[in-house]
Nucleic acid binder design. Structure first.
Lengths: 262, 262
DNA sequence: TTTGGAGCTTAATCTGGATCAACAATCAAT
DNA sequence: ATTGATTGTTGATCCAGATTAAGCTCCAAA
């Protein structure tokens, strides 16, 4: 069905089709020969609010590596912090391992979003981050980003904003986890994916879940079984349609009402 | 018992005794005639890692306002974002209001800690922030902090670190709320206060809770009753001693074990 | 010094979501 | 096509923590 190549691990080959068949692939080709200036995500990624000349300077420090296969790690918990990463295509999850080996998902990352900011303070990454599907990234070595931010006030300002946004978002999740029911959490999660989907010019009502039910549960503080049951319940109420990883938000306003009325 | 003045609201008077009687007051006088250079918190607040000359420049933009009384708001949810604030003495909580008026606590702030970073991205504060006791702050107008950061690479670097630290901390809370039991959450909370207490050169095993049981519950996603019960249970096990707002951590390693073994 | 209200504790009961268990669907690898 | 592993669903039971209810402690204000 998809024309994504399956050459089984030759990550460095670069022979990735420019126009794969799925919506996600079309939106975000895994092409490595791209610049921030020409990247279709530049309006929502780091280059936002930078001038042409500034984007060119940013381009100089951005490294566009080989793509990642599903299950490949970008970095692991307590690796030395070196870079932040922007998702160019595909998706990632970050997670930590508990003492008895259980994983807890701390975030999901879609195209245009920045990963690795949890390492800035401690000089070690606090999470592991792994590709949920075939994916590609832009690596931005942090000490170079700092140096450049010092030359470009716009970039400094924007990176403060990106971090501030992450802080605000994390605090919303704090509220979600401390006081929402399973149904409210799940509805909120779907609505979040919806708006992130439309951010990258895809449908806000119909998208693919790149993560498993178990990932969702670990992220929302619920068990797989509960996530599954809530999906079924929301479907029975006619608010969504789920078929495997494919989700349709049929009654987006009712979903919003579930979240708001808590 | 305390010599804190009770002149009933003349917040602008500035006639605050230099050495109040409580431990907290001794540690953090509400004195407004102070500079970053002479502040006893400068090793853990914004000036960290700055040179004498740089601290002097920072001093120029820091505003040391009148002290706050218990219940006074620093800013409210959706006020226009203008400044970040460092706690000089006392303590604060941040919270958001749900649609039906219930409050949810999103954070507590002790001396040397920075408040208001949730507003950086959106230009509006996402939380309300209120004094839990008589307290004083340093206000740092954000656009001036940005301008100065642009001149002082050390300050830029350090502020990135402060924000990165906030992000890492918020993600720990995500994990806490999504997978810890009531006892684990409470133990973790007490240990957190313990290390923050020792950060400001107070005892790591004996301190006063500036917040109510209800605040703790709203922060940890538990009810007041549960918090109260857990305190009692930990006390019966001989791990802590609680008497009103006063806490003694008697078996700090066992508390750590409770948190780790989850 | 009384009084009222906020804050805290304890006990009895209830319930949302976890746990346990079984099975179905999907997919990758032969 | 067959196999095994991973992922997802559904049902039955259980329990941690919520809810409800009552009384207690503390302290500020009259």
């Amino acid at each position: 069905m998809s024309s994504v190549n399956t050459d089984g691990g030759s990550r460095g080959s670069g022979r990735i089709p420019l126009n794969a068949a799925t919506a996600v692939d079309k939106a975000c080709p895994h092409n490595v020969n791209i610049s921030c200036a020409s990247c279709r995500l530049n309006e929502l990624c780091l280059p936002i609010a930078l001038s042409k000349a500034e984007i060119h300077q940013l381009d100089e420090i951005v490294q566009r590596n080989r793509p990642y296969k599903k299950g490949d790690h970008l970095y692991r918990q307590s690796d030395e912090f070196k870079s932040v990463y922007a998702v160019r295509s595909g998706s990632f999850k970050s997670y930590v391992l508990g003492t008895s080996g259980q994983s807890r998902v701390t975030g999901f990352f879609l195209p245009g979003e920045i990963m690795g900011m949890d390492g800035i303070a401690s000089k070690d990454y606090a999470n592991s981050t792994v590709a949920l599907e075939h994916a590609s990234i832009c690596e931005i070595p942090f000490f170079q980003l700092e140096k450049l931010s010092h030359q470009l006030p716009n970039l400094q300002h924007h990176f403060f904003a990106i971090m501030g946004n992450e802080i605000a978002k994390d605090q919303q999740i704090h509220t979600l986890l401390s006081s929402y029911t399973a149904e409210e959490r799940t509805a909120s999660f779907l609505l979040g994916l919806s708006s992130r989907s439309s951010r990258v010019s895809l449908s806000p009502t119909r998208f693919l879940l790149p993560m498993t039910r178990s990932d969702i549960g670990e992220y929302l503080g619920l068990t797989v079984e509960t996530v599954s049951r809530i999906f079924t319940a929301l479907q029975r109420k006619g608010l969504i349609k789920v078929r495997n990883r494919e989700v349709d938000l049929l009654e987006i306003d009712t979903l919003r009402a579930i979240v708001t009325t808590n």
